[in-house]
Design a protein around this nucleic acid. Structure first.
Lengths: 356, 356
DNA sequence: CACCTCCTCTAAACCGGTTCAAAATCGGCT
DNA sequence: AGCCGATTTTGAACCGGTTTAGAGGAGGTG
């Protein structure tokens, strides 16, 4: 393999000093237009690309963004958000010759250590903060490290960082209204992790909307994992007066909830309407197809990366509000059985008799 | 924030030249034991960590590994493999102060460009190659770039790179035998993408096993996506003499296949047995719970990272064979209805009459 | 013509490590 | 004491960029 051209090669080819090449290619003022063109031409000609390590050494930029994901190994693989989110980040980074450094860590201790390590070793210029917690300790941590960051979602505490947000409230209202319009009156919400910002705000919004629309909100706590989603579903279906519709805080829990219903011999959506909130691809291919909210992880990714790079380069960046989440009504929501057949809503919940 | 200590600070503290510090901390011979200890103590004391950019500049190491994932945005999010795989890689990298650079790209062109960019810019010291294709163009590409790599799975072409492999053949045999033992005779396989190594080898192995066990292999082509899994399932269930069991090349297709069966009003697993091959977490929470093979993505991750680092550091590394995939028999496989009730296997496949 | 400004450009220092030729030190031996 | 070879340590060059003081030249002014 041939040696890559260095800035010296470009300088020699253009007949100038390497300092001038550097000024030119960083768009600094004070270079004559004609010279500038000559240098640009020489650089293009040689196919020169600045060596990131060399640049990092002087300007302390890493030309990389960091994403640290803390997940219980059991929860992580079912999250439909990340791969598309990262694809969105990538579209922005690739064209700027930057790179994403990804860490998946098992617990809070390893997480903090990773933020520190990436920052101290100057491996990244900023962090994308996902899965925001209530009073999230990462915000002061990263601020202390003098690092840049953006948060996905609005923290409930003071934050020095730009916020990427998306209105799910309207979508949750639409979803709840959709069910009420279908005739449901006993509507339950299986929540996400209440330590997480979006778990909490979705639950709050559901409760508020239900209240506004004059029905009693029924809430079962879970944590976004299908396991807990299934558990909460059993709990709800075991009630004396079970719900006719359940809204889950994400799609994997909704899918697990469907399974519990199937297991009990319920006919979906006839006996129970189900909705998720993640717009996951898998939701299109379960039976019945899952009513959910769209989630646009690509949009989150590119907005977050764009904003973070702007913050890094300009020292300031505006918050971004993505277009609000919209309802995707599919097959898993229908009028409740009681409404259509007149039979009491709990009739259908008999456990399936074991087969001969 | 305080300035990080540099190698000069350590040298001063230990009363030696910085060259000697460098020799010491890279475990080079020719340093007196006593001096070595003094230098180590000084470094520990100051909390010194070598600056990766500075090191990269001279020794051309990036202290990072690259993972480039090419996925159709619609397929990627349902893949249960990556997050855990990355977690496995991380366990190895973290303790060596290295980092993972991840790219998610939409097509082959962007993919090749990314490999080039990461390599030329010296962003990584080697690549983890997943989703091996038949006659995979990445192998010559990366070899041309003079980069290190390991492949997940054994390529069908010449490769200069170490191979991490795992025997799925035995698992596929176990799975097929399991179904035959249950009494199934018409067993179908919904394949993965036949351009992919593992899609192809799983299909081949199924066909060979079925043949060996004296049954006719029934094969429907798909590509690992739930969409194609669903399509293939419709195709199979539409046959005059449909299968009583279907083995899917991965879990998302199996889950989509279950949905198709449910949609047609089949009782699972009574009317149709279903199995996946990915050991995904989601498979535990569908109904019926999915019989599958275990997949150990964490094991793949740590083996791949360990081997690649060894190759980078020593210039050579052994192939690794992970423990073979084992059958996880769950609720979705049962004796066929015909065997138990004597009724013809196709009786049950009447489409559900539309509800009033 | 001397002097001042402004615009371009150069040269050298610098970032924080690694590497290696050469210098310093040491013990052993004559 | 003087010499030798082995061991240990130093110092400077180097990696490929960025930054900046100041050199050089053109043009304007009194």
């Amino acid at each position: 393999m041939v040696r890559r051209p260095t800035i010296d090669d470009v300088a020699r080819a253009a007949g100038v000093s390497k300092g001038l090449v550097s000024l030119t290619l960083n768009d600094r003022p004070g270079v004559r237009a004609e010279t500038r063109d000559r240098i640009r031409a020489a650089a293009d000609d040689l196919g020169w690309r600045p060596n990131p390590s060399a640049r990092s050494l002087t300007n302390r930029r890493a030309y990389a963004l960091g994403l640290v994901v803390r997940r219980d190994p059991h929860v992580i693989e079912v999250d439909p958000f990340f791969s598309s989110f990262i694809a969105g980040v990538e579209t922005v980074l690739a064209e700027r010759n930057q790179v994403l450094v990804l860490s998946v860590v098992p617990d809070a201790e390893a997480e903090a250590e990773t933020y520190r390590r990436l920052s101290i070793d100057n491996r990244v210029d900023g962090f994308l903060i996902t899965d925001l917690l209530g009073d999230d300790p990462r915000i002061p941590l990263i601020a202390d490290l003098d690092q840049n960051a953006v948060t996905l979602g609005r923290p409930d505490c003071e934050t020095p960082f730009p916020v990427i947000s998306r209105d799910y409230d309207r979508g949750i209202e639409d979803l709840t209204t959709h069910l009420i319009d279908l005739g449901h009156r006993r509507i339950a919400h299986v929540t996400g992790d209440q330590h997480m910002q979006h778990g909490r705000s979705r639950a709050e919004r559901f409760a508020a909307t239900a209240h506004d629309l004059g029905i009693d909100p029924l809430v079962a706590r879970a944590d976004f994992s299908p396991e807990q989603g299934a558990r909460a579903t059993r709990e709800l279906l075991g009630l004396a007066h079970p719900p006719t519709a359940i809204i889950y805080a994400n799609d994997p829990m909704a899918i697990a909830g469907m399974a519990v219903a199937h297991e009990r011999g319920l006919q979906l959506p006839h006996d129970l309407s189900i909705a998720g909130m993640d717009g996951s691809e898998m939701g299109r291919y379960v039976f019945p197809t899952l009513t959910t909210l769209d989630n646009d992880p690509l949009g989150w990714g590119s907005a977050a990366a764009t904003t973070l790079l702007q913050l890094i380069e300009n020292g300031a960046a505006e918050d971004v509000a993505l277009p609000p989440a919209a309802l995707i009504a599919r097959g898993s929501t229908e009028p409740p059985a009681s409404r259509r057949t007149g039979s009491p809503p709990h009739r259908a919940w008999q456990p399936l008799t074991p087969q001969p």
